[in-house]
Structure formats: C-alpha cells, structure tokens
Amino acid sequence: MKLHAITDDRHSVDELAAKIVSIKDTADFIHIRERSKTVCEISELIERLLAAGVDKRKLIINDRVDVALFHNIHRVQLPSHGFSVKCVRHRFPHLKIGKSVHSAEEAVQAAKEGADYVLFGHIFETDSKKGLTGRGTESLWNVKQAVDIPVIAIGGITEKRLPEVKLSAPDGIAVMSGIFSEDRSAEACERLLRLVKGDLYEKAL
C-alpha cells in the first residue's frame, strides 16, 4: 500500500512548505491541492519544495494541469468536476493521471479513458464533507473489484480506522487532515506509514 498525503488548503505557503518538507522522506506521494491559492502562490510553493530537496516524482498536482506542465511535474490528479481523463491523456500522453471518483461506475469509466489510478471516497464522514455519510468500506471493495488499475481510498481515514480500510485491499490510502492539520505532521505521517506498510516497514528499519 502507498501513503498519499493531501494538502488541506488551510496554511500559508511558508507553513505548508515546512510541513511538506518534514514528510518528504515518509509519504509515498504528496498531493498539492490548494484550491484557494493563486497560480503564483502554488508555483512559489513548488519552487520552495524543489529547492528543499523534495523529490519531484512524489508530487501530484490537483486539478491544475497547467501548473504541472509549467514545472515539468508528471503527475496530476483530476477532480470529478475537472478535465476528463480522455482529454488530458490525448493531449499529454506522458502524464501519470489520477481521477477522483465516487462510484464503481465512475471508476470503470476513468479506467476506460486511460487513468493510471483512481482516488475513491469519501470512505468515512470527514470534516471536509460534513453532513455527508461516508460510502463505507464495502463500496471501496466493490470499486476495487470493478477495475484493474490501482484504487486509493480517501475520506476520514484515521489510525484507528485504517485496519478496517485495509480489509478492502486498496492499493493505497490518502490522508489530509490526519497529516496536515496536525501540529506535528512528520510524526503523524510516520505513524500512518507504520500502519500502512506493516511488517515490511518494520523489517526495513
């Protein structure tokens, strides 16, 4: 399983850069999902990260395909309301493309259009979607069975809930507030990684 850390759009560029740098060697992938920031602010953030030694191959740019291309970053995450996978794949075949989906049907469509993976959620109720019931781990299992591409679970996944999520055999989990809303993001990411990787991680220490 892979650990995806997704920014929560609640921090300044300075604060966010510091948090990302602190987890750069822990998280498998880091999604830049800053919807309220300008292109200039996101670009400044990326430049700071690269200057601080963050591996460009770990960065995934949410929605802003233009920003990814400008910085020669090859991974993008397309929201459900954004560009279709087919459109982006046709124009930029070199990109690694993830698609946010909310059902098995949407996942199948994304796979048909050439998505490299899907981000499925929300699994549990979460602060970013207050009042909306989570789709649950059974739905996650159904999505996993419906497609041959990797399925990443997202939404309300905590350290306590992670064992339940793992029973549905996702290829990874994505965590936002559980990492970036924590005062000590590096420690939170480290704890999650131990749970995600399990015995394999312990043997590597």
Rank of each mutant, 00 (worst) to 15 (best):
S36W: 07
C189P: 03
A17M: 08
E159F: 00
F124N: 02
L192N: 07
R64P: 00
K37Q: 14
K37S: 10
P93T: 08
L193S: 09
A17E: 15
K197N: 08
R91P: 00
V196C: 12
D116M: 09
A146W: 05
A51K: 13
K129L: 03
A107E: 07
E159T: 07
V67C: 02
E159R: 04
Q77H: 14
R161G: 04
I20E: 04
E164Q: 15
L16N: 05
S80F: 09
D148L: 10
G178T: 01
A169N: 13
Q77V: 01
D199L: 13
R135C: 01
L132A: 03
R64M: 01
I173L: 07
K2V: 13
R194D: 13
V65F: 07
L195M: 10
C87A: 15
P170A: 08
K99P: 07
H31Q: 13
H90T: 15
K112D: 06
S100W: 01
T126M: 01
F124K: 01
L200A: 15
L119E: 01
I61H: 04
L16P: 04
D148W: 06
S139E: 15
V143H: 06
G134A: 06
F124R: 04
L50N: 04
L50Q: 07
S185K: 01
K58I: 03
R194P: 00
S12L: 09
L49T: 06
D148G: 14
I157H: 09
R48V: 04
L192T: 02
D127F: 00
E34A: 06
S103M: 09
L50T: 11
D14A: 14
G114Q: 08
P170V: 12
E34Q: 09
L162W: 05
H94T: 11
H11R: 12
D25R: 07
Y117V: 03
G136N: 12
